[in-house]
Computed example of a mutant assay.
Amino acid sequence: MKKEQFLIRQPGIIGEEEFRQYAVLVPMIDIDGITYLLFEKRSSKLRYQPGEICFPGGKHETGETLQECSVRETVEELLVTRQQIEVLGPGDIYISPFNLMIHSYIGIIREYRDTFSTDEVAEVIKVPLDFFRNKQPEKFESKLNHEPPKDFPYERITGGENYPWAKGTYEILFYHYEKWIIWGMTAQIVKSAVNLIDEYNIRI
């Protein structure tokens, strides 16, 4: 490594190896000239978050890029071809306080015919992009508190058991569209993606 390379390196995230890495696609589709965001309702048969609304995506696998992961999962879940998917660029990264990192990609699915794998998806949901432009999500704050293990070495730190641990909060968002509730991590990714779509004047 040379000093010049250090100058232009992209910073890493300390502790990133402890996070589970996932990637999702934020799919835009066109229906009669109107842009919609496409969501999935997760199958009730799934072990994690059954029945919740999300974007197509899943766990990053060794040997693939995060963008490839988002496309692979979309192909598997929505039964579309890779040729139907145009990835326009990366969205923002959602970092969960629960050791979870979700990398989002904004893209287009062309000629989508309402297909999906019933193993993973109960149904698909289409929400007009303008809904999110015109509707602010409800916001709630959840508290985060330190809970050191029972064998924590308090004798090594100033204040011991009375050490003033920092406290924090994380924001939980809710969108309510017709009979659907889009919330949590998916709502955070939606809010960020819609801002990027407008900031960069992204169109189908």
Rank of each mutant, 00 (worst) to 15 (best):
E4H: 05
E4S: 06
I8S: 13
I8M: 11
R9Y: 10
P11I: 06
G15V: 03
E17S: 14
E18W: 11
E18A: 14
F19D: 02
Y22Q: 05
Y22F: 10
L25W: 01
P27D: 06
Y36N: 08
L38Q: 00
K41G: 05
R42C: 01
S44V: 07
K45P: 00
K45A: 04
L46C: 03
R47K: 12
F55L: 00
G58Y: 00
K59Y: 13
K59Q: 15
E68P: 02
E68V: 03
R72N: 12
V75L: 12
E77N: 01
L79G: 02
L79E: 04
V80G: 13
R82A: 12
Q83R: 12
P90V: 06
G91E: 04
G91I: 04
G91Y: 03
D92Y: 09
I93F: 09
I95M: 13
F98C: 05
M101I: 11
I106V: 10
I106Q: 07
I106M: 13
I106T: 04
G107P: 03
Y112C: 10
Y112D: 08
F116Y: 10
T118F: 14
D119K: 10
D119P: 01
E120H: 09
A122Y: 03
F132V: 00
R133A: 12
R133M: 14
Q136A: 11
E141Q: 13
K143F: 13
P148C: 02
P148K: 02
K150R: 13
K150C: 11
D151L: 07
D151C: 05
F152T: 03
P153H: 06
Y154F: 14
E155S: 11
R156M: 15
T158M: 12
E161G: 04
N162Y: 11
N162T: 03
Y163R: 04
P164E: 10
P164W: 06
A166Y: 03
G168E: 04
T169G: 09
T169M: 10
Y175I: 00
H176A: 15
I182H: 06
W183M: 13
G184R: 00
M185D: 08
T186K: 01
T186Q: 01
V190D: 10
V190I: 13
V190M: 08
K191E: 11
A193R: 08
A193S: 15
V194P: 02
I197L: 12
Y200D: 00
N201T: 01
R203G: 15
